[in-house]
Write a protein that binds this DNA or RNA. Structure first.
Lengths: 250, 250
DNA sequence: TTGTTGTTTTTGTCCGACTATATTCCTGCG
DNA sequence: CGCAGGAATATAGTCGGACAAAAACAACAA
């Protein structure tokens, strides 16, 4: 390969790092499972057979299964085999699982549930941020908003600024659990957005909603921050699905 | 071992199943990490050294690392080693991570954050359940309440009934994400309760709060269900910490 | 200084053998 | 005939050891 070239054929992770073999196998199997190709209770091929089938060593295959098992998707037992766990046991809010779930066709019902959760969580997050944010938080968020304006969400830099805005606000809530939860969910949604955007490229400018949230947080006005974030989430739902104003109004 | 005997020395998982070697190593390492023994950015011993140190094969050690990596606790890179990830990347709401976090001394701040999250989530969950529950849900919940009354929370059967009550209500919300999230958090809290209960055995009877929630859900009264659940969570917070009425009133 | 090339350390992958576990089945006893 | 106990068996679990690949680092050259 000539200097400067890059191999875009390499499978990459969420964070852009290349996937090892065990990672790709885990990802493929994970997607198959969450998309219903293997139903809960189904038993996967035994390790020897499965690894031969996938043309990887048994070691690599086992490490992949460990990953899926750590996320609650499967359960391995001697003499029985590796069984797909009941959905109830799946770690649905695990970032990878979330990512896998929205890789095929984003299930309408599931997407609605996800936004239902966002609508519960994020307004309260904004309210907490309004009460607890530091001046440093405000500085970063304001700067991020400026970058969003100049670059727009169509560019990589713009989306990075958007992420910075949100992650800074999460940090400002002072609640690590809330931050962990929301960051994963928002990431999942942003992938869906990306997915949808190939078909329906144009949608409403998200900046005004962000500004409203920022101003409320800046003014330490929890009530206003909550209201502004409700609007932002509802708008995001409409943008993502194109429908479902009923759910948003519930 | 004579018939009927059991080996209580075996390390067991949350669900009671025995842990394999890779499981115990993952658990031990995981607890060390979340309890701050290894700080974010720190690099673990290389696989050969570490596995020798722990007297396990490199294969088993690697599978343990895969588990931790799947939960966002560590990140492994060739030539660098296995590095503890920044806390921001940890999957804090993963049931195992949560479990590990409350194994040593339950951090006061963290526990408060967890209840802050519960106070946001669970009332809304109860409200949704009130709107969407089926008659079957009601039947199971009522039955569970009866069992709670007859057995009390001091017994295994009583706690099982309590769990059934809560998990049924989560099912009734019709939101898989909400259910997944809450079940993990409630489980973590119940372990802390168990932990605390060794010192302060006696606390207020939780049954009346449960009944109020049930009656509201049964009457399909979302507002009342929300209010009743707020009370239940606040009461649980007081019972768990013994202090912190400020946070509960926020 | 900058770019390139080699060195080296560490994780990643593979293989093949053996162990542990738990189901299934069979056998013999009541 | 039914059932308890033990043997057979299929599967995941563990091991050790070899080699491959990635990536930081050092040495060197332009």
């Amino acid at each position: 390969m000539a200097k400067g070239d890059e191999d875009f054929g390499v499978v990459r992770r969420i964070d852009g790092k290349p996937l090892r073999i065990h990672g790709t196998v885990a990802r493929d199997l994970g997607i198959s499972i969450v998309s219903g190709e293997y139903l809960p209770g189904a038993i996967l091929d035994n390790e020897v057979t499965a690894s031969e089938e996938l043309k990887v060593s048994r070691t690599a295959y086992r490490e992949a299964v460990r990953i899926l098992s750590a996320k609650g998707l499967v359960e391995a037992r001697p003499k029985i085999g590796t069984r797909v766990s009941p959905r109830k046991n799946w770690h649905l809010l695990d970032p990878d699982v979330l990512y896998w779930m929205f890789q095929r066709e984003p299930d309408e019902q599931l997407l609605a549930s996800l936004f239902e959760l966002r609508r519960i969580i994020e307004p309260e997050g904004a309210a907490l941020a309004a009460e607890r944010r530091s001046d440093e938080h405000l500085r970063i968020m304001e700067r991020a908003l400026q970058d969003m304006r100049t670059h727009t969400l169509a560019t990589e830099a713009g989306r990075a600024a958007d992420q910075l805005f949100h992650s800074t606000m999460l940090d400002a809530t002072g609640n690590a659990f809330l931050a962990s939860l929301t960051s994963g969910v928002e990431a999942a949604v942003s992938w869906t957005t990306e997915f949808k955007q190939r078909k329906a490229p144009l949608q409403r400018d998200a900046l005004p909603d962000h500004i409203k949230v920022f101003e409320a947080v800046s003014a330490a006005d929890a009530v206003a921050a909550r209201a502004a974030m409700v609007e932002l989430v509802d708008q995001a739902f409409v943008d993502t699905t194109g429908a479902g104003k009923d759910t948003a109004a519930a």
